[in-house]
Design a protein around this nucleic acid. Structure first.
Length: 439
RNA sequence: GUGAGUGUAGCUCAGUUGGUUAGAGCACCAGACUGUGGCUCUGGGGGUCGCGGGUUCAAAUCCCGUCACUCACCCCA
């Protein structure tokens, strides 16, 4: 009689092998893509002093913090993202050679109400550059985002790039301030869901916009797509300092991106707002074109002020974050996730207790040849052992039966085809490898 | 946090206007198959009907509460 009910907290999840195996494979792809651009791995604590995390992600962010008193009565909180801990780290180790390029793949926690594709604990995969204000850095992290999606085999995605100064500068020309600006951002951000006309309607009903302001917003949101449009924007708002600065920064970044041949996937989108308060200029997010409705799968931007919160000297920084859980769900829907429940490629059956040593030896030889091999843990009848291999989708079974062992052989069976042959034990590894290639 | 909906076997679901021992498919276990899985056939185990209370001669079914999940809003990865 169990005395404790097995259960887990809302918004938290267990991951079984069938999802962890493909997910780990995705994570390795992401990590090696980051490394191919020269980013180095780091790890930081899950728990930080609350004051380190507070006030960096906006009011909403603070509310979502998991925050409590630890056993030493310290005010602590679990990290909400990987960017703020990075800023703390950069400020704490001034000896780091700048620009510092790091990646981090780790869980973060947000106490928001869970829903479709939204959890209280989820993995983020971040790559950031601290200590460079060059547009090359902005362009590179966007390129990294594209490279990750390409490496994962995402067939169609769209990378939307903007500069926060464009929208916030435009908001100033409308005379908006404080909360009104944030409300304006939030409404504009809905353009993907409700369309341009929907946004214009909402501006009237939710944001108390007058007819003239709506018309001006409509015109402003008409810009975007390519470089030429950006030029036009710059010409039209040349006298507005903030917009002009945003446009020229974006122009430089976008020009570099075009040089990498990203024209089709990457577009200028002046309606981008992004949630985090700390973004200062370049912002961008990548969405899947199909399946639709999965929301943002990669996102990021430039945050030149964040490190300065922790250090005397400000350090400019820019980065990208990959939302692996959402990406995984999207790829799963596209049928691009190959489900596996075991890494084992070969099961070595144990014919009878007295033949266990022979099975163990064969398994060791196969492992030395680089194969993932398990030895059957029961000496039950062979049918059971085959059934086990079948259920775990292990493609090959090796049977060192008494007759085979007497001849220095073992039987190799490929489950998918049902074919089986007897092979000399010293040729076993090569033979099994060949057979596995056909599976 | 607000509104709506759904909770029946490990999973997907049936369960007629409340009416005997609550069903199916898949999965699981065993056998047919004494050196071989998948397919087929036969048999078997498994359910406090989310939880608590109420109405009733009688509740999976009706009512109230509660919890969990799903969808929309909000926000985001």
């Amino acid at each position: 009689m169990a005395s404790v009910t097995p259960r887990i907290l809302q918004g938290f999840r267990d991951y079984l092998p069938e999802t962890m195996i493909p997910k780990e494979r995705m994570l390795r792809t992401i990590a090696s893509t980051f490394e191919s651009f020269g980013y180095a791995p780091i790890q930081t604590p899950a728990l930080e002093f609350a004051e380190v995390l507070l006030g960096k992600c906006g009011d909403e962010g603070d509310k979502l913090l998991y925050r409590f008193r630890d056993n030493g009565d310290r005010d602590v909180a679990m990290r909400y993202d990987l960017t703020v801990p990075l800023a703390r780290l950069v400020a704490m180790y001034p000896q780091l050679p700048l620009p510092f390029k790091r990646y981090q793949i780790a869980p973060v926690w947000r106490g928001e109400s869970p829903g479709r594709g939204r959890f209280r604990e989820f993995l983020q995969c971040d790559a950031d550059i601290a200590g460079s204000e060059s547009a090359i850095a902005d362009a590179e992290v966007i390129q990294v985002g594209c490279a990750v999606l390409e490496a994962l085999g995402v067939p169609k995605f769209l990378m939307k790039v903007s500069n926060r100064k464009l929208l916030s500068g435009f908001a100033k020309t409308l005379g908006l301030e404080g909360r009104a600006v944030l409300g304006f951002f939030r409404t504009v951000d809905k353009i993907d869901k409700v369309g341009l006309q929907g946004v214009l309607d909402l501006l009237v009903t939710e944001n108390d916009f007058k007819h003239e302001a709506v018309e001006r917003t409509k015109e402003f949101l008409g810009y975007g797509g390519d470089l030429a449009s950006l030029d036009a924007l710059q010409k039209r708002y040349g006298s507005e300092e903030e917009i002009a600065r945003g446009a020229s920064e974006l122009r430089e970044v976008f020009g570099l991106l075009e040089a990498c041949g990203k024209r089709d996937n990457v577009v200028v989108d002046v309606s981008l707002a992004r949630g985090m308060d700390y973004y200062t200029s370049t912002i961008y997010e990548g969405v899947l074109r199909e399946p639709a409705g999965f929301g943002t799968v990669v996102a990021g931007g430039r945050y030149d002020g964040l490190v300065g919160v922790f250090a005397e000297k400000p350090v400019p920084a820019v980065g990208i974050s990959v939302g692996i859980d959402r990406l995984f769900a999207g790829l799963q829907e596209l049928g691009l996730v190959k489900e596996e429940i075991s890494p084992t490629r070969v099961l070595v059956a144990v014919f009878a207790p007295n033949l266990a040593p022979a099975s163990m030896k064969i398994a060791s030889d196969l492992r030395r040849a680089g194969l993932a091999v398990e030895v059957s843990l029961s000496t039950e009848k062979l049918g059971k052992q085959f059934k086990y291999a079948d259920r775990k989708r292990i493609p090959v079974v090796v049977i060192p039966g008494p007759d085979e062992v007497a001849r220095g052989e073992a039987t190799v069976k490929v489950l998918a085809s049902g074919d089986q042959i007897a092979v000399k034990q010293d040729a076993l590894a090569e033979r099994v490898k060949t057979l596995l290639q056909g599976v």
